[in-house]
Amino acid sequence: MREKLPALIITFAATTQALAAEDFCQREGLPGRLIPVPREITAGCGLAWKAPPQEETRLPARLTEAGIQWSQARVIPV
């Protein structure tokens, strides 16, 4: 298996919020993609947004500004 590398993982309470985040990031040209929630994080929704770790501050702030509710934003090896 490939080596795990640090990444920003943003979790959501519901799938609709995860999909709203994907829609927003794609429209705004923000990096990342949807992945299954890693075991290191517990979340209500099975989808998480994975992005480069340097987005740790900017990306959650942009989601909040857009009215998209997220649960956790953590940099972990995935």
Partner: peptide, 21 residues
């Protein structure tokens, strides 16, 4: 199946359902 995983088939369904909502 929408909301049942993060592979392309599941995401395709989840996106379609989300757009409909």
């Amino acid at each position: 199946n929408a909301s049942r995983g993060a592979h392309e088939g599941a995401l395709e369904a989840s996106r379609a359902v989300y757009r409909a909502r």
